[in-house]
């Protein structure tokens, strides 16, 4: 409420013309709101079975695409790869905030990847979540017999989920690849 913090917020506001900007650290008020309760939205990645479910989902996707008639192994693996990458991009990097109402929107500016493990980098969960898409890519590109077109599609899809996971891009926002930020001005 103080005028002092108003000025600060105004200075930090994103200019709509810039293509890339870094999400500023949260205000003290917001940090204390975040600390009120454990972040139930991001905590489950460390829960039992949360790692196994990735493998299970990938296998199920493979089965589902194999069942569809006239889908070749190449297409099937590529579809599995694309579906998994799309889903995980949507979940970890596109959607921001928390769908539940328990800390007055204290995480509204962070996507799920940034919420995991309290923003710590190179945690076991994050390592696993980065390794899965890379392994899936290596496998799928193997079974698509290294056809150039399939290789490119799979490779780009993998890059889309691997690159935003790197610590260098922590809190970085690119126009077009991210939804518009919430106005946080006073």
């Amino acid at each position: 409420m103080s005028s002092n913090s108003k000025d600060k917020d105004n200075r930090r506001r994103r200019r709509s013309s810039s293509l890339m900007y870094q999400e500023p650290p949260e205000s003290l008020e917001q940090q204390s709101d975040q600390a009120v309760l454990p972040n139930l939205n991001a905590q489950w990645v460390n829960a039992k079975g949360a790692w196994l479910i990735h493998i299970i989902i990938i296998l199920l996707l493979k089965i589902v695409y194999d069942i569809v008639p006239s889908v070749t192994q190449e297409t099937s693996w590529t579809l599995v790869n694309i579906t998994y990458m799309f889903g995980s991009y949507l979940m970890f990097h596109w959607v921001r905030g928390i769908p539940f109402e328990f800390n007055a929107g204290a995480y509204d500016n962070l996507n799920m990847w940034e919420q995991i493990d309290n923003e710590d980098q190179y945690t076991p969960a994050k390592k696993f979540l980065l390794a899965v898409p890379i392994c899936l890519f290596l496998v799928s590109t193997h079974y698509t017999h290294y056809d150039l077109a399939y290789f490119m599609i799979n490779f780009l899809a993998t890059l889309a989920v691997v690159v935003p996971k790197l610590p260098a891009l922590h809190r970085m926002r690119l126009a077009f690849l991210n939804p518009e930020p919430q106005p946080t001005d006073q």
């Binding site: 650290p25 309290n118 923003e119 710590d120 980098q121 190179y122 945690t123 390592k127 980065l130 390794a131 790197l166 610590p167 922590h170």
Partner: peptide, 11 residues
């Protein structure tokens, strides 16, 4: 490299 890197907190 990612898997072998040590954990740290940017905060």
């Amino acid at each position: 490299r990612y898997v072998l890197a040590p954990q740290y907190s940017p905060r």
